[in-house]
Design a protein around this nucleic acid. Structure first.
Length: 291
DNA sequence: ACCCAGGGTCGTC
DNA sequence: GACGACCCTGGG
């Protein structure tokens, strides 16, 4: 592991806060100097930003540049994408102005599956806490700048965990779900490499739904955040809330029909529904006044 | 002290 | 297809 640096200049659609705090990832932490440090696969990375210049420093076996370009989806033209979405309506335009620096990360499929199983009926601080605990207990330790970091465990590493051990890490009722899913992936009952090669989104979703703890919402998050399926539209409490307030106007958001919401999103946002969802989610969660 | 809600899913009716 | 239960933690 050697220390590397990579600098990106003239990066318009890139804001660390927007990217790391929009709820798509759980392993990035803000440092005192305003930069963020996180663990991605087997690399530890620190990201700092001065205007449109982004400085990446980290330790990794592989070329840091390759990791950054892939993970932050640097070759994806967000200027163009935002322009397209902004034209849909003024709400979309406003949410994009609010979260103009959001980028959808390209995360590891396996880590994403476990992370979003943990996310069920949970809140973001506790999700982060649980993932950290799992990494600390089962993942490899990496030391950088005299600080300890823990990689997210491999399938094999986590397959050694018992249900009781998982429960003791604060997972709650999700302990069995994590256990069963890990076993299914470990014994290749579900083959992640095959899933990565599948073309049809519907086929991928069907496969993911076979995993314990993976329902429609979690499956869609996994597809959006680790398989570049931008057409899916994960429906959670926040998105249901914001979509109801903007377009549907039922008295209570619980009354909003999921199918109806799904159809509305497909019609409005088409193949960019997932990215639209992320701007809306961040807008509504961060800015209490947007109701 | 008590209640509520959180990036939902599962088992049961 | 609807409905309640579910670990745990932080905030009102």
């Amino acid at each position: 592991m050697e220390e590397q640096e990579y600098i990106l200049k003239n990066q318009k659609s890139f804001c660390m806060k927007h990217i790391f705090e929009c709820g798509q990832c759980f392993r990035w932490n803000k440092e005192d100097d305003g930069s963020y440090t996180g663990v991605i696969k087997d690399a530890v990375l620190n990201v700092n930003q001065i205007d449109n210049t982004i400085i990446f420093k980290g330790i990794s076996e592989k070329d840091l540049k390759d990791i950054v370009i892939e993970y932050f989806d640097i070759n994806h033209n967000y200027e163009e994408l935002k322009e397209k979405l902004s034209k849909i309506d003024d709400f979309m335009k406003e949410s994009i102005e609010f979260g103009e620096g959001i980028r959808i990360l390209n995360q590891d499929l396996w880590e994403c599956i476990i992370s979003f199983i943990i996310s069920a009926n949970n809140n973001i601080p506790r999700i982060k806490k649980i993932i950290d605990a799992i990494s600390k207990k089962y993942g490899k330790k990496v030391v950088w700048n005299n600080k300890e970091f823990y990689l997210f465990p491999t399938v094999e590493e986590l397959s050694k965990a018992t249900v009781e051990e998982l429960r003791s890490l604060g997972t709650g009722f999700r302990d069995k779900r994590i256990y069963d899913t890990t076993q299914k992936i470990y014994n290749k009952e579900i083959n992640l490499e095959e899933i990565k090669n599948m073309q049809d989104s519907k086929e991928i979703e069907e496969e993911l739904l076979k995993l314990d703890g993976v329902g429609p919402k979690v499956a869609n998050c996994i597809m959006l955040f680790s398989l570049k399926r931008y057409d899916v539209f994960p429906i959670d409490v926040w998105v249901r809330r914001v979509m109801n307030d903007l377009y549907i106007h039922k008295e209570k958001e619980e009354q909003v029909n999921k199918k109806e919401l799904q159809n509305l999103a497909n019609e409005k946002y088409k193949d960019l529904a997932g990215i639209a969802q992320q701007y809306l989610f961040y807008w509504r969660r961060e800015d209490g006044t947007s109701a």
